[in-house]
Structure formats: structure tokens, C-alpha cells
Design a protein around this nucleic acid. Sequence first.
DNA 1: TTTTAATTAGACCAATAAGTCCAGTTTAAA
DNA 2: TTTAAACTGGACTTATTGGTCTAATTAAAA
Lengths: 201, 201
Amino acid sequence: MIKNRTKSEDKRRLILKAAVRLFVEHGFTQITMAKVAEHAGVSKQTVYSHFGNKEDLFAAAIENKCLSLGLADSLHLEGELKTCLTLFALRFGSFIIEDETLKTHKLCAFEANHLPQLAEIFFRLGPDVVISELSRYFAYKTEQGKLNTPEPRWAASQFLGMVMGEARLRAELNQMDEKTLVEREQYLLNSVDMFLKAYQA
Amino acid sequence: MIKNRTKSEDKRRLILKAAVRLFVEHGFTQITMAKVAEHAGVSKQTVYSHFGNKEDLFAAAIENKCLSLGLADSLHLEGELKTCLTLFALRFGSFIIEDETLKTHKLCAFEANHLPQLAEIFFRLGPDVVISELSRYFAYKTEQGKLNTPEPRWAASQFLGMVMGEARLRAELNQMDEKTLVEREQYLLNSVDMFLKAYQA
DNA sequence: TTTTAATTAGACCAATAAGTCCAGTTTAAA
DNA sequence: TTTAAACTGGACTTATTGGTCTAATTAAAA
């Protein structure tokens, strides 16, 4: 079997790295095991030694990708309320229209039907984290008397939905246009104002 | 060549119908031309006679599906403001978590990379219609003095985002849970209230 | 050094699928 | 009835791919 020898672990990392890049860019069916082996600079047999079959390799690759997307960077919810919401809106608003984020999301959503575990991983490491963190923050701010959100999870859901907005719909379908993009920052600031107008205590 | 003879047109419709059902359910790569022919009760050659190749058949099927999803049913924006928004939220909120709607959306988003025309069709017949109609309605209500939305398209974007909410994210990834589902109507009513609190004149 | 695990390159297998071809049959128009 | 278009079923070609097997090579541990 495979132990944690240095060389072997190196190969494993190379394979995973290549798999992540190729799968996220081109999807499950378009990528062959031979291509992964080639891009990893490794023989096909070695790929099969480390990851038993294509589906397992795919799942490992997606999980790895989800963890490395950098979602956490958007989640520093500290400081004064409005500043905090604004910062989150701008950061997370950029994050969700990034090419890598979108490709991963679309891939997981699409393959969700025949690989349920995949969608579960993505949801748990992605949307669920964000909604939960935001809920917690809103509950806290309500407790502090700064906000009035009796249902923090609903408020989180609403805020997230607004931050996505038209830009997210367009980006997902490769229909982003100049107008939506240059107006995006103003739109996000406006959404924060709108949210506070409805929920500020 | 193929004229508009009755029998021939019938066959064409049968093929398209089968293609729509199969492609939407299982995606592009999973469906073979032989399967389409079989489900349409037609020979493979006939499929190729009517639609030159697999990609053309796919595009035709998706366009057909987009037009028949029944989006328009959500778009009767008439009557008193709050009633109208509530009705829209409930109808559209249901529409976007329907299985057929989701499958079509995910398919188009996923195939958007290598079939750009497809994503364009979907965006034009789907999201774009909704945002535009809602914008128009908000502009009108602002003109009437009932709302105060200086940027109607932003407000539309925000309202749509809220209507999607957590349920949409979950449904897309097959992670719908009981709680989110039974609370959905209350959530949508709450979103209408929240929107009006921020934007009612 | 010896031995054992890991890797490699490439042949190989079985299955699948897009698209073509064709001889014979059905359909419908003239 | 004649004729031409449309359809059928199935064989066929060509190409791809997931996965296995093997003999030879390399690397590391004992």
C-alpha cells in the first residue's frame, strides 16, 4: 500500500493539483484520467494507485478546491455595523463573481444529481458557512440593540440575495456587461443602505 | 428536403419533445442520439434529417424548454402594490425552486462555457425578462408616488435576490430541508415587508 | 546490499457513441 | 396509379475512454 513517503505524497499532491485545475476548468466528463496523469507528469497507473477511480478523484478534487477558494477572507465580521456590512458586501460580492468560484459552483450544482455527496460538500463548505456566520452576526447585533432582526437567518438570506443580485445571474451565464460591472460597487453600497433602512434599530 | 407535410412535422415535434425531456433530465453528454430516437419512436436517421447534429438538437431543445417553463405566469404585475408584490414573491418564489426550472437553469449555466449561444438564450428568456419587468413596475410605482426607488433596476435586483434566498441555494444543490421549505412562505412575506419598509414612499 | 514498495510506459480490453450509408418500405402528393 | 420524398432498421466506421495487466525501472527501507 501507499505510505506517507515523501516522493509518494508529492506525486499525490501533483495529481490532485492537476485534477483540480482540469476538472474545475472543463468539468467531469471532458477530462480523462489520461489527461490528469499527463498534466501531473505521472503515469496513469499512479493516478489509479492514489485515487481508486475517476469519481473518487473528482470528489477529492472538488473538496480540495472548495477549501482553497478563499471564502473565509470575506467573513471578517468585526467592527462598526455599517462599515462591517459594507466591507462584507464588497468582498463577498467580488468573491461570488470570480471565475474560479463560479466554475466550481456551477460544476457542483450540475453534478449534484448523480453525485449527491459532491453537492453536500459544496453546500456545507460554501453557502451554509456564509449564511450561518451572517445569521450569528445579525443575532449578535440585534442583541446589542443595533439591529432589529427577529429572524436573523432570514435577514442573512435576504442580505446575501441582494449582494448576489443581477451581476451574479449574469456572471453565471457569461452575460456580464460593462454597465452592471461598473455600477456594481454603487449597487452594493445601496444594498447596505437599503438593508439598514429596513433593519436598523 | 423536408417540407411541411403533416407526418414529417409530427415526427419533428416528437423528436423535440423527447429531446427536451431527456436533455433537461440528464444533461447533454448523458443522452445519446440513439436514445432520443428511441424515445421519440423514430429512427436515428430521422433525427439527423430534422436536426443536423447533436449540438443543434440540444440548442433547439433548450430554447423550446425555456419558452415552455411558464415564467410568464409569475409576471402579472397589476393591482395594489403590496398585494402585487406578495403575489409575485409567492409565485416566482415557487417557480424558481421547481425541479424543471432548476434543472434547466443548471444545465444552461454549466454548458455556458462551451455553448455560449445557449446561455444567451436562457438569460434573454429568463432572468432578463424578470428583472426588466420588475424594474418597469418599480419605476411606474415610483412615478405614481407609491414607491421611492431612484434606481428601479437595483431595487428589482434586490427584490429578486431576496425572493431567491436560502431556499434557492439549497434547492440548486439538492440540499432542501424541511425547515427551509415550511418556513418559505413566511420568509417571502417577510421579504415583501422588508422591501416596503425600505422603499415605500 | 538486499528487499520491498512505488512508478512507468505501453499494450490491451470492452464498451460506448457520433455520424454515415444503404436497401427496402411507407406516405403522400400529383 | 405513378412518383418522389420521408422513414426505417441495422450494419458500419472511427474514435474515445475507463480501467486492467505486465515487465522493467527506480527509490527507499532494513
